[in-house]
Simulated scan of single mutants.
Amino acid sequence: VGTTSDACEPIVNGAALVGKIALIDRGTCNFTFKAAAAQAAGAIAVIIGNNVAGAPPAMGGSDPSITIPVVSITQSDATAIKGQLGTGVTASIGVDNSRLAGTDLEGRPRMYAPNPIESGSSVSHWDTPETPNLLMEPFISSDLTDVDLTQWAFADIGWVGPTSGVPAGSTPPTIARGFAAPNPFSSGTAIKFSLAQSGQTRIEIFDLGGRLVKRLPAAWRPFGMQSVDWDGTDARGHRAPTGVYFWRVSAGAGVQSGRMVRVN
């Protein structure tokens, strides 16, 4: 596509991209420009092939008009695909649910280490593909979370040792000190609980008959005290009737629940 295959110039084979996945070389223009150009030509997805040896490029940029998926691959993989274009290539793009976004093959979060080096940012932040976005990323994103891995990074490199106030041989509960406040409540309440370690948490609301009323958005939360609001509505957004309800928090193998009462 384009005169140099990097889509930084006007695409000259647009008809060939309609309904296809566009293979585009990494080049001098930004990734959003390439994706937008391919989408405008009718491509249903984009594969960016690196133009240097090494890991696939970490793509950045934002353009809300782009709705097609965009992925990056190594230079060697791109070369292999190009070698088969004459006979036809079938490709699919999907999500690998066994991998955490932004981690290496062993599941470890990667540091931000672009080439060439960026003074003040290189190896001072987590990498941009991590999801959810972490504290100490090199860019301020609208979906930046309060997930902080610094303590564990320092422990991994030997700056600090793992510490615990729990006697040897005992295991702290995953979830502790759960309660709802205010309780009873009228318009809404907050479900408060403490996590012994960071992790994915799920909060569900049930009525007195055990029927699921609402599942609050699951989220990765740091260790320590948490507070999650329930506005008193069900899954359809309707105001829940007055009565007795139960909240349940799940995190890893830990589960804790409690009772709350909605009044007029």
Rank of each mutant, 00 (worst) to 15 (best):
T242K: 05
G14A: 15
I93C: 10
G188K: 14
S141F: 04
L208N: 05
T233F: 05
A22Q: 09
W247G: 05
V255D: 03
L212R: 14
Y245N: 11
G2R: 06
S76Y: 09
E130T: 09
T145E: 05
A22S: 13
T67Q: 13
V147A: 06
T90A: 13
V70M: 11
R248K: 14
A251K: 01
T3F: 04
A38I: 03
S65M: 05
G169C: 06
V261Q: 13
A155D: 01
A91F: 04
I11W: 03
S164F: 05
S122T: 15
G61H: 07
F193N: 02
G165P: 09
M225P: 08
V244D: 02
S250C: 04
T128Y: 00
A80K: 11
G254E: 05
V255R: 15
S98K: 12
R26P: 01
I24C: 13
A181Y: 15
S124D: 01
D143G: 02
T4E: 12
G188S: 15
S72R: 09
T128P: 01
P114V: 01
W247R: 04
A91D: 04
I191C: 08
A253G: 12
H238C: 05
E130F: 00
S227M: 07
I21H: 08
T128I: 14
S142T: 14
F185G: 08
N183R: 07
G88C: 10
P167Y: 09
P138T: 08
Q197P: 00
N183V: 01
I73M: 02
A196D: 14
L85G: 03
A168K: 08
R108K: 12
D207E: 02
E118K: 06
P69Q: 06
F179Y: 15
P138Q: 07
D148H: 07
P64Q: 02
T32Y: 00
H125F: 07
I24Y: 01
G86F: 06
D127I: 06
G237P: 04
A190V: 07
V95M: 08
F223T: 00
S92L: 10
Y245V: 03
R239N: 02
A196T: 09
S164T: 15
L23F: 11
T79P: 00
A41H: 07
A16D: 14
V1N: 13
T131M: 04
N133H: 13
P217Q: 06
A41F: 03
P182C: 10
A180T: 05
A91W: 05
T145N: 10
P172M: 05
A196N: 15
Y245Q: 10
A53G: 13
W247I: 02
P241W: 00
G83Q: 13
G86Y: 10
N97G: 01
T4V: 14
A41M: 11
D146Y: 09
F193V: 04
